[in-house]
Write a protein that binds this DNA or RNA. Sequence first.
DNA 1: GCGGTAATCTACAGCGACTGTAGAGACAGG
DNA 2: CCTGTCTCTACAGTCGCTGTAGATTACCGC
Lengths: 141, 141
Amino acid sequence: MYAIGTLAKRTGTKVQTIRYYEQIGLMPEPGRTGGGQRRYGDADLDRLAFIRHSRQLGFPLDAIRELLDLSDSPGRSCGEVDAIARRQLREVEARLARLEALRKELRRMIGECRADRIADCRILRVLRDHGECLADHDAEA
Amino acid sequence: MYAIGTLAKRTGTKVQTIRYYEQIGLMPEPGRTGGGQRRYGDADLDRLAFIRHSRQLGFPLDAIRELLDLSDSPGRSCGEVDAIARRQLREVEARLARLEALRKELRRMIGECRADRIADCRILRVLRDHGECLADHDAEA
DNA sequence: GCGGTAATCTACAGCGACTGTAGAGACAGG
DNA sequence: CCTGTCTCTACAGTCGCTGTAGATTACCGC
């Protein structure tokens, strides 16, 4: 049985994040000491490690919730797990494509600017006139 | 002079987003009709187009604010503009590197799983045991 | 000028996934 | 028993919007 800070250190998680996971029902409510402090066991450690690792791979918390649920029914087919992982891969690939387009446009923009004064700056010109731009999607890929 | 909805359509922005930009001081407070509705001119259109296009390239609003300020001093050197653009390029490249690592790991994970039952699922195993994973950074690249 | 309906108004809550803060109380080592 | 570190709750803030509710205004045909 260890305190929340220990669990945090062992999983590379912030204490507040663990409490947040509890609050949204991703981590179970742990036992408490007489004084009201949380005490965790190894099952909690495993679960949190699973969550953190999945987060590192970019899975959203909802997907992680599904994965945790599935992982509790060992007899079922793992097709659903596969589907979630593939969905995440598609997400990552879509972001990659988007970011590659951004990189290309940024490089072009920066490469073209040989001006000294802002009045002639090609970068600002590209930002002003969408027509000079090659990229054309929404932001935050 | 046109209404907010017209400005929204012409720039591909939502009406609320325009009001939000005004609220955070990125767009100036426009003139109003007697009844209190906002009316915009071409300068507003240009400014909003600049903002939207910069957002499409992934610039954060703070950077856009700087770019807009710089763009108002045409005599100055465009070195700062260049620096902001390069910073953004580095951001994009960092995210790309991160996402490429994720893609690799996800592909490996998915490719390895030939199990039928969840109990044997390689994907879940990788998620449980960090040691089996190659990626090792923080999430949300 | 009037009526209907579409657009706009303000104010605020919610998203995702945390992070940070304040002020109070608990625990462990010496 | 004291001291210093940890933990507690509750809530605000991050980023960049997006959605909602309920009231008001503008515009268009008649």
